[in-house]
Each structure stands twice: as C-alpha cells, then as structure tokens.
Amino acid sequence: MAKVKYYYDQETLSYQKVERRKRKIFGNVALFIFSSCLVGFLLYLYAGKVYDSPELRSAKRDKKFVEMQMESMEEEIAQLTAVIEEVEERDNSIYRIYFDANPITEEQRQAGFGGVNRYKNYEGYSNSDKVIALKESIDKLKKRTAIQSKSLDEIAVLAKDKEKLLASIPAIQPVRNQDLTRMASGYGYRTDPFNKTRKFHYGMDFTAPRGTPVFASGDGVVERADANSAGYGNHIRIDHGYGYVSLYAHLRQRNPYNVKVGQKVKRGDIIGYVGSTGRSQAPHLHYEVFKDNERINPINFYYGSLTPEEFNELLKKSQQENISLD
C-alpha cells in the first residue's frame, strides 16, 4: 500500500496531505522511457562502430571473398588471353602460311557482340561494372578460342592433304644409281637414233641391264600397264593425283609388270623391269612426268632420293646433247 505523505503548511500552521498528480506521474514516466531509449540508441550506434554484428561480419566476409575471387579470375583471364594470342600468332605466321591458307584478320578474331545488351541482368549491383567487364572478357575469349579451334581443324585437314600431296609427287629416281650403266639421255633436243634428226626428247633415259627393277616415283594408282601406245612398248602409267602422272616405258618383254591396272602403289614399290620393247635400241627405262597433261622435265623431281652431289652430276649428264635410245 502506497505511503501517504504530508507537508507542513506555515500559513495554516497545520499538516496537509501531499496530493500526487497523475499527469505529472505520466510525464515523469514518459521522460524516463524516452531518456532510456535515447541512451540505448546512442549506445547501439557507438557499439556498431566498434563491434560488428554476426550478420554484418558474415556479409563483409562474403564480400571480401567475392572480391578475391574476381581478382583471381582477372589474373586467369589475362593468362589465357596471353596464351591464345601466342597461338593466334603462330597460326597466322607459321601454320596458315605453310599450308597456303589466308591468315585470319585481327578484326575477325577481336569482333565484339552487337545487338541487345547481353549483360543487363548483371546491372544494379555494387560490383556490376566489374562483373560485366569480367563476363565480357570471358565471352570474347570464348569466341577467340572457338575461331582458333576452327582454324586448327582447317589446318589439320590441310596438313593431311599436304602430307598426301608430298607423298604423291614423283620425287625419286625410278632406277637406283647402283643399277645404272649410265644416264643415256635427258629432257630436251636430242638426235633421234633411227632417222638421225634433231628431235625433242620428252623424258629421261636410264640405261640398265634387262630385268633391273623399276620403282614407282610417288604414291598413286596404276592407270595403264600395256603396250598399246606407239613407241613406248610395254609401259606403265601411274596417276599420282594433283595433276601428276608418271610414265615408265620399254619394259622387258617377258613378265614386264609387277602391278596391275587400278592397283594402289607407294613410292619405292617395284612396278616393273627394264627391257627394250617398243621403239628402243638398247635396254633402258624411258621415264616421263606429266603435270596437268603437259610433259615436264623429270630432273626437277629427284629431291627424294639423290644427294646434292648426285643431283648435280645427273643434271650435268642430262643436259648433254647426245643420241637418245628411243
């Protein structure tokens, strides 16, 4: 029970009862509550500057982790960009030039992305600019990689075709040096052995004993193996592809062929044997090379079997104007 308080009234010279006003009480209570809230708020602000809440600490940690990952991604993108630039340089300056392919222009490799804003979903965040820049770098890198991958696929096809071409070109001497008696006649004007007139000789004559092996000078398919061409006697023609055809004439009478029409042969395979059939005065191999149906000098196609010294000696002999054997 609340205590009753009194005070002494000097005017009436008597004790009077103290009356407590409810409004004053309410005001005091309100003032106390307001003061308490104000002090608490000020303490909260002060504590917030000194101590982080668990949620705030977690958010700051996550933000720092994201920033670290973004920095790491920037470094990786820079490294990958350097690698792709080196591959592009090799592709343009070595591979594509070697295989007669046009280089890919810088505009094609560095082309951007037109049209709508593809990075709209990344806008409106605290790190939007950085995220968009990273995403754009990644997209460009992916495009450059795709272009380079397609280029290397093309180079692989060209390389395979180039390897096939190099294997197909008639590039070796059809009779081995150790089997030769002599190089009788070369490509150019020579004296015809039958009518003694000066006549153009479209091949090279290799003098060798009957039965000496004759080798395919390049990969190809046997196009002919017969004696149905005037003057050549028993002869073989090999289609090497790419416009090249080689001809081997005056093969021996008996069992002249070691191949048949339609057969695939490799450079160095034995295809027949030296003889003296057709328009021939002595055992030898008459050898011709065609490019796009035009006869060309076979001397230019022996880089696959002769040393520089042997080639120079053969060249010297082939240029002598003498009497041919056919």
Score class of each variant (00 low, 15 high):
306 L>K: 03
126 S>W: 03
192 D>C: 13
232 Y>G: 03
297 N>C: 10
25 I>H: 06
126 S>M: 12
125 Y>W: 05
147 I>P: 07
8 Y>Q: 01
269 D>E: 08
270 I>Q: 14
48 G>V: 00
6 Y>F: 15
137 S>F: 02
168 S>W: 10
279 R>H: 06
284 H>L: 02
298 P>C: 06
252 R>F: 01
232 Y>T: 07
146 A>C: 04
192 D>T: 08
264 K>T: 14
20 R>M: 12
153 D>V: 00
56 L>N: 11
254 R>I: 11
163 E>I: 05
280 S>K: 00
87 V>W: 01
160 K>W: 05
91 D>A: 14
205 D>P: 04
1 M>W: 12
114 G>L: 04
11 E>P: 00
305 S>Y: 07
92 N>T: 10
99 F>A: 06
267 R>S: 10
310 E>C: 12
19 E>W: 06
12 T>Y: 00
210 R>N: 11
251 L>F: 05
258 N>R: 12
201 H>P: 07
131 V>I: 15
130 K>D: 09
85 E>T: 12
73 M>P: 03
321 E>P: 04
32 F>I: 03
188 G>N: 07
114 G>F: 01
211 G>N: 09
172 I>R: 02
275 G>S: 06
205 D>S: 03
71 E>R: 13
17 K>G: 03
289 V>E: 01
91 D>Y: 02
129 D>T: 11
58 S>T: 10
277 T>V: 07
22 K>F: 07
172 I>S: 01
320 Q>K: 15
47 A>F: 03
130 K>W: 10
281 Q>Y: 03
248 Y>M: 14
85 E>P: 00
305 S>H: 05
139 D>Q: 13
228 N>I: 04
313 E>L: 15
242 Y>E: 01
231 G>R: 08
317 K>L: 14
90 R>P: 00
6 Y>A: 08
235 H>N: 13
284 H>E: 02
184 A>T: 13
165 L>C: 02
12 T>K: 15
85 E>L: 11
72 S>N: 09
87 V>D: 05
43 L>R: 09
198 R>S: 09
75 E>F: 08
197 T>S: 14
188 G>Y: 02
268 G>Q: 13
240 H>V: 00
152 L>K: 03
91 D>S: 15
242 Y>T: 01
89 E>C: 05
79 Q>E: 10
